[in-house]
C-alpha cells in the first residue's frame, strides 16, 4: 500500500517537474514578453497542480493534504488575475508593439470587415447605398 502511494506520488511529481521544465525553457525560447507569458502559464497551471497533487497524495496527515490542495485552488484563482495585469502592463508600456503585432491587427481588421459584410448580406442591404439613401432623403 505504501509503495503504491509512493509510486503515485513519484509519477505525479515527476510529470509536474517535466511541465515546469517546459515552461522555463519557453521563457528562454520566445522573444517577446507576451509570448513568454504563454509559456509561463504552463508552470502556473499544470506544473504546480500536478506537483501539489503528488504531494497531497502522501501528505503526513489529512489536513495538511487538504491545505496543499487549497494552494492549487488559490493559485488557479490568482494566476489569471496576475497574468491579466502583467499583460496590461506589457500592452501599455510597449511602444514598439505595432512593429511585431501588426499582422494580427491586419487579420483582426479583415475579420471585422468580413463580419460586417456578412451582416449586410444577411439583411439584404448593399453597404454602398446606405449613405446614398440618406443623401436622397435630404435632397
Amino acid at each position: 500500500m505504501e509503495w503504491i502511494r509512493f509510486g503515485l506520488t513519484a509519477l505525479l511529481v515527476l510529470s509536474g517537474l517535466v511541465f515546469c521544465c517546459i515552461g522555463v525553457y519557453g521563457l528562454f525560447k520566445f522573444k517577446y514578453a507576451a509570448n513568454r507569458m504563454h509559456a509561463a502559464a504552463i508552470v502556473d497551471t499544470l506544473g504546480i497542480s500536478l506537483c501539489m497533487l503528488g504531494f497531497a497524495v502522501s501528505a503526513p496527515d489529512l489536513f495538511s493534504g487538504l491545505k496543499i490542495l487549497l494552494v492549487i485552488v488559490f493559485w488557479w484563482l490568482s494566476s489569471p488575475v496576475a497574468s491579466h495585469l502583467l499583460c496590461r502592463l506589457e500592452i501599455t508600456t510597449d511602444e514598439q508593439r505595432d512593429e511585431y503585432m501588426h499582422v494580427h491587427m491586419a487579420t483582426l481588421k479583415r475579420e471585422r470587415e468580413e463580419a460586417e459584410a456578412a451582416v449586410y448580406a444577411a439583411a439584404g442591404i448593399d453597404p454602398d447605398e446606405i449613405g446614398n439613401e440618406a443623401k436622397e432623403e435630404q435632397a
Partner: peptide, 23 residues
C-alpha cells in the same frame, strides 16, 4: 514585464518547494 514575469515564475517554483518540504 519580462522581469515581473520571471519573478512570478520564481514565486510559483518557491511555493512548490515549500509544499515539498511538508513531505
Amino acid at each position: 514585464s519580462d522581469r515581473v514575469l520571471a519573478i512570478n515564475q520564481i514565486g510559483t517554483i518557491t511555493v512548490i518547494m515549500v509544499a515539498l518540504t511538508v513531505l
